[in-house]
Design a protein around this nucleic acid. Sequence first.
DNA 1: TAGATTGTTAATCGATTAACAATC
DNA 2: TAGATTGTTAATCGATTAACAATC
Lengths: 214, 214
Amino acid sequence: MQEKSGIPLPSLRRLPFYYRRLAEALQQGLAVVSSEELGAAAGVAGAQVRRDLSYIREEGRPGIGYDARALASRLEEFLGLVNAKEAVLVGVGNLGRALASYSGFERYGLHIVALFDQDPAKVGMTVGDRQVLPMTKLTSLIARLRIQMGIITVPSCAAQDVADLMVGGGIRIIWNFAPCRLVLPESILVKNEDLAAELATLSHHITHRTQMSH
Amino acid sequence: MQEKSGIPLPSLRRLPFYYRRLAEALQQGLAVVSSEELGAAAGVAGAQVRRDLSYIREEGRPGIGYDARALASRLEEFLGLVNAKEAVLVGVGNLGRALASYSGFERYGLHIVALFDQDPAKVGMTVGDRQVLPMTKLTSLIARLRIQMGIITVPSCAAQDVADLMVGGGIRIIWNFAPCRLVLPESILVKNEDLAAELATLSHHITHRTQMSH
DNA sequence: TAGATTGTTAATCGATTAACAATC
DNA sequence: TAGATTGTTAATCGATTAACAATC
């Protein structure tokens, strides 16, 4: 996945770590944080932080550092953490339930408004306070509520069919946890979270005892 | 995380996708696959594939392509998928159970040999065919069985304490699903799977409707 | 031979890092 | 003022891409 314009993707991916460090600092009553401290939270040097923050037009004070509250607000705005984001989730296995009940997501503005499963035995079940709905209702619900994001936690490549249904309903962004490459129109943003593929790279390191650093 | 020597990290991370495409091809009875086809499976061009494969010293035949069986074997070997890798998992919530019962891992040689949880109510529970053990047994079990890898699926930054215990037992590689940066000796390889941070970058895209491509 | 596809060189692209004048 | 830290320029580093002779 590559950003086509604006902030480089590696920079974007570091911002949440800066944000966490700022939240921590604020809780400790610190009003100001230096680029070096922020960098430590993301495993990069201070210069990198300053460069990253220049992309989002946030300025610090030379000799002092960054205003923690101002920078945290700017990051919330830039990352859109304050905006409500609605998602549906398909595949109510252990992983689906884990994501559906993960409180860290709500804190970032993500509301998983509906759960779906293909298994009739699961339809009607309650997870959190949401009922599991049948797949037949997926497309229409997405369209009716104008849901922006779809989360796929089905095993196997049934993921492709699920993705097609989601896109049919009007979804533009898919967070895919199935170990399959989805084939979808260019306009759909797909973020793959492919744990088996990640494991394979770890396996390489276990096998070859390679050192890594951040 | 940055590879210090050998194959570049971006290349390494594409190899599992090539491997999957090869497995698929073999199942379809294809004996040969071109770099362009492999590239499609990872979202890159053929030239990139040829470069990646040159790092692992696998050669194709000009005008023909790559021998699917030979390349698949080479990838299995290079990624260490055939080697048995033993891991312990700490934190038997939904996510922990999802990982503990994910069959895709076994296929890549990962055996999660023991589960731990800090919650007395969970100790003694059975997941798959493994009993959940108390934290007091973590370090000694790791040391006794010479476990290589630790998987952390606890919520919150109790993850740091868990990681310290793991390292105390002799673990060298940690797969961390907690939304916290672990502070550990340089020699320990930490792979963070930080879903909240990933969500934050998706949130940015939802908010700004940016296009991405692979 | 003609067509396809490789491996690799050279060019390009983009991110990171070092360095430092400017500023508080 | 002296010390700290910024924003940004220039240099470096590393990955990707284009191009093509070599090969099947």
